[in-house]
Design a protein around this nucleic acid. Structure first.
Lengths: 213, 213, 213, 213
DNA sequence: CATGAATGAGGTTTCATTCAT
DNA sequence: AATGAATGAAACCTCATTCAT
């Protein structure tokens, strides 16, 4: 009789639910989190979850989307694309790792849990592709070849993979953000020099650097 | 051929069960694979699974161990550690990616599904650490500083992450082994040059380093 | 009439479930009664049982507690402790045996089935001790020595054992309540006179005692 | 390769199995003891159990019979029926409680576990009746009314119940044999004086005592 | 709008029991 | 005679999901 029956505007309720869901999913994983647990965490009743999100799968999907969007938006917002490639790289890596460090639950939901159920392979892959594309464009922005190139993409895959691994260490507290950033910047910078269009002319990596400025 | 009622020696049955379990787990994931499905795939009865492995969790653990051991053993066996660093790297990357290409189910079980249940975080992390150590030693073998170094380890983390990402593409058929290998070799080779002990001596690296700041 | 889908307040459902559980447990015993059978008897679904009571063991424990409480409360309520010892005894024995006669299922659950699983040894023993204490106080109330005495307790153990045996006959319909009551009253009355504090004074008891040695 | 395949004569094997079964049943109860556990305890294979005893139920029945027979035989053998009633009583009670004390497992199997499954209600009840009859005859032997009497039987029921209760305390180590014996002797002796044929002539209990000698 | 009450369906696990050697 | 290997059947329990209020 006391509490719980407050009327809240839809938007507030939605965030309240997603917050609870993200938290529980990231702690216990998709399959090991029950709708009961989420409802309890959100301090609402289970039917509300179903009213707003239809099913557990859709709820998780909504979590995924919100977190991914937040992530991409935040990181992108912090990047100033008008910088020199080197500064751009540093800027991007720091934006990325700082986001991870500040939003550990999100990251785990996005990359660790989502992969477990095939239902989200699509969403996760799509999200990852968006990031990979971002990185690929970053790589490409330092060259004279602006058209899409599968090799840039492949290098981006590798670098994003490296980034995920490093980010995982950060998210578990096993790595210091600044150290990790330095390493990633280094790796990316060298990766940048290993992109295909440059391969043919060895020693041109320097010129790339210079051209980029 | 339907068989099932044949008396098989313990060792044979064990492999038969693990084969079935690895296959099902890698297709549907840990939580979405029922013991019924595994028993059906192995053409045996469910109690056999429990007789041999005790529980679903232990069965998955056994899969993990077998596949990880196979993986590490096979890759290590293909590497000739007496080669020059560059050949060693090429050799190792190819051994790795070829194994992935030839054992897609194993790889997915090991790295994608295992993470979904917290029960295996330990095992997976441990396995990954073994690989990271392997890579770290590989990196270090190209230097004159044989003692362990946390920076080598961190670089190995990143490179293994890159390797996992690339391997995932390979395992899904979205990337060609040779192309992927070439890229990884390049990335690793450049990563190698960015490792701490070289920072002070490699002139080009140094200049880059200085420029970066 | 089949019902089942009616919304009942929690308290009602609880009793409905306990009624069904007590009945089934007392007919078939703890281990030979399945949760399915209890759910069917209660005309509800199995998850309700688990929702309300958590596990089969806890459900049985709840049965035990309810029946024991009912038993103790009812018997105690019928006893007027201001009577003379002899009337008190008659009153108590009749209250006890009448309760047994009127609640055969309860009795069987309490004393016969509960012992079968070690999980309830504690509860059963505790319940029995409460009754033994009641009897011990009853015995003692006929003496001038109100302080606790282990010999009173031991005599109570024996008399309660006798009572259980007689009650079992009553509960199976193999004994008439009034006959059984008469016998128990006799036995208890004589037992009363054999309690330690009286040993020294009752001449005949004394001689018996001496002869016995 | 080492042991286990010894050929033993049937009689020896039978005892070996029953020993193991009695031990396990008395420790864990009928339902909570698996055939596996019994086979392991007996250091033979499960099919042997089935070859010799057909089913778990029959095996338990065999345990029950052996233990009950042993019990009745041993106690009866220690009783000298030519003694005076008082000595006879003392003799019998001590024989009984000493047997319990020396064979705790047997007792628990017989009285505690057997009751849990309806399959043995018959056997247990039958065994108990044999003991009750023994006691009834004992009671009656002290009177001039040698013909069967339901009231003697009822008193025997009560006294045996008391005996069981006391014996249970002994079997759990919560009561000293000698103390318990003294109490039971007392109770029985007084119970003896409360038997029906004596009820009509009050004060004649003493004469019974005297007549009995 | 919000929820307590209720369930169908399916999962893991165990056990008594039997076959083939 | 003796057993390792194998299983049908059923138990307990949980969960996503939906009514009826």
């Amino acid at each position: 009789m006391a509490g719980g029956t407050k009327r809240l505007p839809r938007a507030v309720r939605e965030q309240q639910m997603l917050d609870a869901a993200v938290q529980m999913f990231s702690i216990n994983g998709y399959h090991e989190t029950s709708m009961d647990a989420i409802a309890a965490q959100a301090e609402i009743s289970k039917p509300m979850l179903y009213l707003y999100y239809g099913s557990k799968e859709e709820l998780f999907g909504a979590c995924l989307n919100r977190e991914l969007t937040r992530f991409v938006d935040t990181v992108r917002a912090e990047i100033d694309f008008r910088q020199s490639p080197k500064d751009l790289l540093r800027n991007a890596v720091l934006a990325f790792l700082n986001y991870i460090d500040a939003n550990r639950a999100s990251w785990i939901v996005l990359y660790t849990q989502a992969t477990s159920s095939q239902a989200f392979a699509h969403t996760v892959r799509e999200g990852r592709e968006r990031i990979i594309d971002l990185v690929a464009r970053l790589l490409q922005s330092g060259t004279r070849h602006p058209e899409p190139d599968t090799d840039f993409n492949m290098m981006a895959v590798a670098l994003v993979g490296a980034g995920e691994a490093v980010a995982n260490r950060v998210s578990t507290g096993d790595a210091d953000v600044d150290e990790a950033a330095e390493l990633m910047i280094n790796l990316f910078w060298r990766g940048l020099k290993g992109t295909p269009s440059e391969k043919e002319k060895d020693g041109s990596s320097l010129s790339l650097q210079q051209n980029a400025q």
